[in-house]
């Protein structure tokens, strides 16, 4: 990853944090002083390196892991702001990346009951919950949208 792509990646992440959603290529281009085509070309290189994930077609952001640029069943609340996470693992990752306490909002896939979990100093306030991953680690990037 060269310095230009690293800077594009870092700017994209900074905008996700700032906006609470995925920025468009045009928004990133405007902030970076680049063309939209240059941003899309850079995003595609970063996608190939698993540094972010684009939607099919390569025109918009799907994941800036652990953040999701699209709505998911996993939300993170901190400092009065909200972000979508790609999965429950990533929800903890967002709080860790932001270095803050906060809350995770999701639902139990079995019973559909809402789960609202506070996290303080990195520790979940309800330790009775469990996490399940269906797909072994060797296959996570085979379909990063289904793990």
């Amino acid at each position: 990853m060269d310095d230009g792509d690293l800077a594009l990646r870092n700017l994209t992440y900074a905008l996700v944090v700032e906006l609470g959603r995925g920025p468009s290529a045009a928004e990133v281009a405007d902030r970076a002083g680049q063309s939209r085509a240059d941003v899309l070309a850079g995003w595609r290189r970063l996608h190939e390196q698993h540094a972010l994930v684009l939607e099919a077609g390569g025109e918009s952001l799907r994941m800036a892991n652990p953040f999701s640029a699209v709505a998911t069943p996993h939300r993170v609340v901190a400092d009065g702001r909200r972000w979508y996470a790609n999965c429950a693992w990533d929800a903890f990752g967002i709080l860790a990346a932001l270095g803050t306490d906060g809350g995770i909002e999701t639902t139990c896939p079995d019973c559909g009951e809402a789960i609202e979990l506070g996290v303080s100093d990195g520790r979940p306030e309800d330790e009775s919950l469990v996490f399940h991953s269906l797909v072994p680690a060797a296959g996570w990037w085979d379909d990063i949208g289904f793990t």
Binding site: P73, W89, C108, D110
Partner: peptide
């Protein structure tokens, strides 16, 4: 990759499918 109320909820949700891995939420954090 989801949170569940308990291991019993995971088992019911799997409905006979091959399980993956279940870990405590503290380990996930």
């Amino acid at each position: 990759m989801n949170l569940f109320r308990s291991e019993e909820h995971v088992e019911r949700w799997l409905a006979g499918r091959e399980p993956g891995a279940t870990i405590p939420v503290a380990t996930l954090a």
